[in-house]
Design a protein around this nucleic acid. Sequence first.
DNA 1: AATGAATGAGAGTTCATTCAT
DNA 2: AATGAATGAACTCTCATTCAT
Lengths: 213, 213, 213, 213
Amino acid sequence: MDKAERRLELLRAARDVFATKGYHAAKVDDIVARASVAKGTFYLYFPDKRSVFVELVDGLFSRLGGAILTVDTQGDIEAQIKHNIRGIVAVLLDDPALTQLLLSFAPGLDPAFAAKIRSFYDGVKTLLRVSLDEGQRLGIVAEGDTSMYATFTVGALKEIFAESTDRGQAWPREQLVEQLFRLLQRGYLRIDRAPEAPVSVPPKPRKTRKKTA
Amino acid sequence: MDKAERRLELLRAARDVFATKGYHAAKVDDIVARASVAKGTFYLYFPDKRSVFVELVDGLFSRLGGAILTVDTQGDIEAQIKHNIRGIVAVLLDDPALTQLLLSFAPGLDPAFAAKIRSFYDGVKTLLRVSLDEGQRLGIVAEGDTSMYATFTVGALKEIFAESTDRGQAWPREQLVEQLFRLLQRGYLRIDRAPEAPVSVPPKPRKTRKKTA
Amino acid sequence: MDKAERRLELLRAARDVFATKGYHAAKVDDIVARASVAKGTFYLYFPDKRSVFVELVDGLFSRLGGAILTVDTQGDIEAQIKHNIRGIVAVLLDDPALTQLLLSFAPGLDPAFAAKIRSFYDGVKTLLRVSLDEGQRLGIVAEGDTSMYATFTVGALKEIFAESTDRGQAWPREQLVEQLFRLLQRGYLRIDRAPEAPVSVPPKPRKTRKKTA
Amino acid sequence: MDKAERRLELLRAARDVFATKGYHAAKVDDIVARASVAKGTFYLYFPDKRSVFVELVDGLFSRLGGAILTVDTQGDIEAQIKHNIRGIVAVLLDDPALTQLLLSFAPGLDPAFAAKIRSFYDGVKTLLRVSLDEGQRLGIVAEGDTSMYATFTVGALKEIFAESTDRGQAWPREQLVEQLFRLLQRGYLRIDRAPEAPVSVPPKPRKTRKKTA
DNA sequence: AATGAATGAGAGTTCATTCAT
DNA sequence: AATGAATGAACTCTCATTCAT
């Protein structure tokens, strides 16, 4: 077997075991058993148990980072946001075990991991907040504390993905994208305003924007 | 020292240690050291390490559960929702260590705990969803998948509290309540914004608010 | 059993196992088996395997250091030197297992240990060299490189003790003292000169000391 | 590459690694890395790690053994002794890494090795003792326990070489030979010091050398 | 002959739990 | 009730050795 392939096999095995049992309950023995190799083999490919974990999380992080593009306010904002959402959905739902792993990881577990994961989310939130600030200037984001909006959004996304992953993808992918977008839109996005009008926001006719909300 | 008091002391010690180091890194030695008792004493009050943890989480859960009242649609809905939020905020921010513990605990970490925690959140979501369903009938909640609204809300709350706890309570309590409410309100609530008007959202007369909801 | 006593028991067990099998071949399992305790107990008394070893060697070092007194050139030199030799002999032969351990320890085995042990011997040699320098000024030590004399002496002592320990103390203690002294005396000491006279150096008549040697 | 040469290369590599890190800390990986061959290759030339070590030590032993000639009491004793010393010095200082290895190896470290090494030194001591016994009969060795003289001598030599090797050969070779000889001479040898006179120590007529020697 | 990936027995260490005092 | 010394199962990681290529 090819060296790179065995490495991947071990990563996959580790991912599955971590996702199933959690980091601490996952023993190296479990991982190698799942990969059908001897214990020592594990250490040919990774310096220690922790580093596989870190590599898995890092991989997901970077794929997520790659999926999120900064919104260009000159272009079609709705399309870009949906594209970002779609990207995130794709990355996360393509590897539910890994998503489980990421979402199930929490501060307090291990200071070293916590810092790494927190900094990732902080990065996402900052990205988001900056976009929201810009949006406020353009009048397409409601007034208010944008950093709280960002926190709110990230939390909502995390929970929805956690649930999706948990339940083995109850919601079809594109529907998830649509619903997520509408949540954001009805929440604080003001691409189409008339936000306080009870219902039926006509999506397209954007020219009539009012301040009042 | 009184038996009940010693028990409490141990619980507090455990809570602090768990919150600081996480469940696995917290050693029984750390807990008893913090409580200034001998190691054996710990086992006079608790059958094992895990059960202290469970008891702590359970306690927080039940206090949270107690703080959330089913919204009586005959009464002042906004006030009741704010009261609920205020209750949750109070419970969580009154014991940041425990909140940290709860939020830092996640599925995947340990299957047994995960089930317990998930069932709590499921309970909260169900409570919420039922209220939202009712709200939809009353026309004060936007159309859409209420279970997703519930998930969304819980996720947002978790993230905001996590951040609040993390940062040593950056936001003043009442402001947090207000902002959370406004997020919900602007999000999918369709209560009329007659600002500061005490109460009485006329439940039935839905025709005036037309088109949807 | 008393805590201090158990500690001693473990030290003794470790000493015996180390002396018999050497540091690397000595397993913690061997030590605890010999001390008739569980493996975990070992770690209640010592942080790790290495530290027991270090403690053993340190103990012997300090006892040796305590046995060696700086020679006061105003007093009876021969008596003082013999006293030193007697002290060293006593320390080393009283605990053959530990002596075995010390002598069987060598540079290259482990950089950390090597430094520790080398520095001890360096200390001894320096002590000796200083005495010899003083002796040369007084005309009771032959001319020549005193640092080489010191090295020579230490090597000879080490070998003789190694052999004594090996063979289960072939030579009676006081005879060893006498013979060691005579080796030194005939070697480079000039307390009683007439050094070239083939045999039978009359030990006492010291008053006639001559420079010439 | 020629088979014998590769074998030598591995031996050299092993010698260097052993000398630097000691036997236990030296990994087969280190050795093959230094020899720039694959790990499996090592086992084509040697059955196991230990056997390389043994072969290295054996080689040094036999070279040492070859350098030591039995002293012919009919010939020039001083010259022969110096020749022996010079031979030992040459063997040891020509390969400091190996010397380091030999001297840093000690009983207790590993029973199997210990026996081998002890038997070598025992051989040397016996050789020496026999010569000294003969010397006593000839009146050129002081009275006393010759086996102790032998032990003494070997120990002194070991220590001096250990120090020389340690310090990267502080003393020039011929000076070392001279000084070693003088130590022996002033110690228990009773050869007349007629300095530089080529040879022929008349064995018997001892009375003429008086006082000074 | 040479390679180097794979092996797996075994080591040191940890720590929740027990129990004699 | 309280103590804290003792326990030992379990874990991660090491590395000499093997063997298919």
